[in-house]
């Protein structure tokens, strides 16, 4: 009865959606509200919007966030530079379902704990960005992938659970925008370390990748940016989302592989 969740991720810069490669800005996708409208018309399961312009330009305009929420008849998560309960409260007021907290959590802050008391765990996403280092170990980074923290994603996932997060997004920095498949080892290690729902992000290329990370590796949902924003051999900008029959085929195939 439970449906697999496939979640498009849009990166917000001002009023635009952009896409990054390994966390460096790379391409302009289009107007963010327009992009969200298209995902809405394709009945996407959920949408994640992360404000990546916040560090250089300040917090995004409330009217952009309100407009986004108005267009989404699906759950909408928003993140990027959130560092206070007051900011979180304003976002919920604007119609955001979930807020995604990264730097204010991974650097040791207690924002998730404070916000969970006020808004409930289900609305709080702990977002963890990590890289596979030269020695094969995984390390968490903050501030848009610029500051190494010397902590593993597994340890960070446990802290997220202790603080009362409702969900974890584990993102591979080195696979961002690369379309080489998820870092399945990293995702699986986080899934095994927590009972919280884990959303995989970074590297997805095909609908099969989405289905397999859930069915084979235990993720609660599969998120992606590039594969929902670009299309074809030339990777032209085209907002897309798998149709029901494509989903079913991929799920059936993944189940087959999982039991094989």
């Amino acid at each position: 009865m439970r449906r697999l969740r496939f979640i498009p991720v849009l990166l917000l810069d001002g009023t635009s959606a952009i896409k990054t490669h390994r966390f460096a800005p790379a391409r302009y996708i289009g107007d963010i509200v327009n992009a969200a409208q298209i995902f809405n018309s394709k009945m996407a399961d959920e949408l994640i919007v992360i404000d990546v312009g916040v560090h250089k330009k300040g917090a995004s305009q409330p009217h952009v966030i309100r407009h986004l929420a108005e267009e989404c008849f699906m759950p909408l998560a928003f993140g990027g530079g959130i560092n206070s309960v007051a900011q979180a409260a304003a976002l919920f007021k604007h119609g955001i379902e979930k807020i995604s907290i990264n730097t204010a959590f991974v650097e040791g802050g207690t924002l998730i704990e404070e916000a969970a008391k006020q808004f409930g765990s289900q609305s709080l996403v702990a977002s963890i960005d990590a890289k596979r280092e030269a020695d094969g170990r995984y390390q968490v980074y903050s501030r848009g992938g610029t500051r190494a923290l010397g902590v593993s994603p597994v340890e960070m996932a446990r802290r997220a659970a202790d603080q009362g997060a409702g969900e974890i997004v584990i993102q591979s920095i080195d696979r961002d925008g690369m379309r080489v498949g998820y870092d399945r080892e990293m995702v699986r290690s986080v899934v095994e370390a927590t009972t919280l729902p884990v959303v995989a992000l970074g590297g997805a290329d095909t609908v099969a990748d989405l289905a397999r990370i859930i069915i084979e590796d235990g993720a609660s949902a599969a998120a992606a940016g590039s594969m929902f924003s670009f299309y074809g051999r030339l990777q032209a900008v085209l907002i897309n989302y798998p149709r029901a029959d494509e989903r079913e085929q991929a799920v059936a195939k993944a189940c087959e592989l999982a039991t094989a």
Binding site: M1, R2, R3, R5, D45, S121, Q122, G166, E167, T195, L196, P197, G218, S220, A221
Partner: peptide, 13 residues
């Protein structure tokens, strides 16, 4: 069962 997390979050029929 152990693999069902709480909260129940997502689309259900």
């Amino acid at each position: 069962s152990a693999e069902l997390p709480i909260p129940h979050m997502g689309w259900s029929e």
